[in-house]
Nucleic acid binder design. Structure first.
Lengths: 107, 107
DNA sequence: GTCGTACTACGAAGTACATCGTACAACTCT
DNA sequence: AGAGTTGTACGATGTACTTCGTAGTACGAC
């Protein structure tokens, strides 16, 4: 079974997490994962970029420690590392997701 | 009196704020401003870069809507736009500052 | 006015990032 | 085994960012 490398919780750096979440496309992925609750395959995301680019963004999120990915058949399932993030940076993820909510809800 | 352009609170975008705060040097500035409370001149910051670079980072923070800057004599005083940020993205700034606190406090 | 201070503006150089296309690998299904 | 699906790897390209040096502007002090 193939596996993908994930940073340990202690190795997750604020720099990397913030940089990862500064991209709108990556926040879109994170949002969908957070709202879905369940692990989802990359194909479940309707992103306005090619597969290559999509792979790149998922990789950035995984290497930043924001999401976890594991093989399941010929798909890769992704899910939030919500607990790890909350333990390391309490309230951060929630604040960012909530902030975007505000941004979207314009008059 | 010279003035510097600041984005209106409604024009402040999460993308820009997160990108601005993803840089460690800029977070260092923000941290010092937040802890100091009072407005401080750029020279009050002991940053490991040249003045040009320093100017650049202050500018990024100002254009992102994170700090306010105004002339005072031949200095420029900077201060956090804490209230504006809190109104637009509740809890975000505090979560990021707290997160860094955790990072710094290693065993 | 002249000098020093504090900071900006502009251009240059190196680095990092986002995006894509093509080629490839692993898995499922028939 | 062969074909289709899902996603990766690698290289290329254009854009943006960081950093610096130099030159210049505004202000206070003398």
């Amino acid at each position: 079974m193939r596996t993908l490398p994930h940073p340990a919780m202690e190795a997750v750096r604020l720099d990397t997490v913030l940089a990862a979440l500064a991209d709108p496309l990556r926040r879109r992925i994170v949002r969908q994962l957070s709202e879905g609750g369940e692990a989802q395959a990359c194909g479940a995301f309707d992103l306005p970029v090619t597969k290559s680019t999509s792979t790149h963004h998922f990789r950035v999120l995984r290497e930043a420690g924001v999401i976890a990915q594991y093989y399941r058949g010929n798909k890769i399932l992704s899910q939030m590392r919500a607990d790890d993030l909350e333990a390391r940076f309490p309230g951060l993820l929630q604040a960012i997701l909530a902030a975007e909510q505000v941004t979207v809800a314009g008059p």
